[in-house]
Design a protein around this nucleic acid. Sequence first.
DNA 1: ATGGCTACGATCCGTAGA
Length: 256
Amino acid sequence: MTVKLATWNVNSLKVRLDQLTDWLRRASPDVICLQETKVEDVNFPSAALEAAGYRAAFAGQKTYNGVAILAKEPLGEVTAGIPGFDDEQKRVLAATIGDMRVVCLYAPNGQAVGSDKYAYKLRWYGALRGWLAAELARHERLVVLGDLNVAPEDRDVHDPKAWEGQVHVSGPEREAFRALLGIGLKDSFRLFEQPEKSFSWWDYRMMAFRRNAGLRIDHILLSPGLAARCAACAIDKAPRKLERPSDHAPVLAELS
DNA sequence: ATGGCTACGATCCGTAGA
């Protein structure tokens, strides 16, 4: 019995709802984490997603941020935010689905190295690491999915020289990402041979997608027990080719 | 060339994303 896990920054759930339900029908993930839903909870499209076969937990706000977890099975123990880390921004949502603990993340962008938003990004990562270490101790089967807004290595960057030291690839950001691996999480994408120049985000401008000028910043991290069961991980570029796409592509992992 | 797209909520531009 296989379990399919996915993450997709949809950049407005309202705009992408039809693309999402089409993709759910085609890819049929058991669990999918969404970021940048940009919708208040009162306006969350529960009925349309239920018609597509998915239950949902969500934590949203107007205009910015917003996360949701969709699953074919019931979601329990839903919690929003990082305990002890005061934050108005809706970036973190967790739920128990079957025997798995699922954490959906939308990491801060960071804007520019040295900015207030960059400092907030690193503070957020510090709190995240402490919380996830505790979650790992509590849950043998833990999966962390989301837009982490860090390209962990140079091979995750289309032009490492041009991006050197920039936000998303700077040393402190990469250390923050590596710290998540340091507590025992595995980057499912790197458990397998992958095509060269695999990315999950491409700028809307400058024909970046056509030039494959992208970054790999959307990730699926697995606890050791789940990593041992991981049979595949891939980025699905198909939705990025549609009219009016999200700038991110979905990432999909399969557990045996 | 410091722009270039896109979404949003405000108006007919500013903010933010990455």
